[in-house]
């Protein structure tokens, strides 16, 4: 499954009400490490069906970033059953993204 772009209008349906765990990638166009992380997340999204991966651009969605206290990007937040389960800040390699989802 490809990475889905999410905003305020579909955050509830795509993230909070999702049956599967959701990995939310908070990012911005001007952020180099975010751009490095993107192809890694694309790959993981294609390979796995047990987790949904979504992308939130913090410049377009500043309210969501504020609501979830995102103050550094890239920031990965794993949501389970509508609540934040854990988060990771900064660029991490693919194996660590997988561990982050699995553990």
């Amino acid at each position: 499954m490809a990475v889905i772009k999410v905003g305020k209008e579909n955050f509830e349906s795509e993230v909070l009400n999702s049956e599967k765990p959701v990995l939310v990638d908070f990012n911005a166009n001007w952020c180099g490490p975010c751009k490095m992380l993107k192809p890694i997340l694309d790959e993981v999204a294609e390979e796995r069906s047990d987790v949904k991966i979504v992308s939130i651009n913090i410049d377009d969605e500043d309210e969501l970033a504020e609501d979830y206290s995102v103050y550094s990007i890239p920031c990965l937040v794993l949501f389970k059953n509508g609540a934040e389960a854990k988060r990771s800040v900064g660029l991490i390699p693919k194996a660590e993204v997988e561990n982050f989802i699995n553990e």
């Binding site: 490490p33 970033a65 995102v70 103050y71 550094s72 990007i73 920031c75 988060r87 800040v89 900064g90």
Partner: peptide
């Protein structure tokens, strides 16, 4: 607190402040 107020890169994270 990294990403929750602590940062090592002003040009990366300054915009949040």
């Amino acid at each position: 607190l990294i990403g929750r107020g602590i940062s090592y890169c002003a040009t990366c994270d300054g915009a949040f402040y």
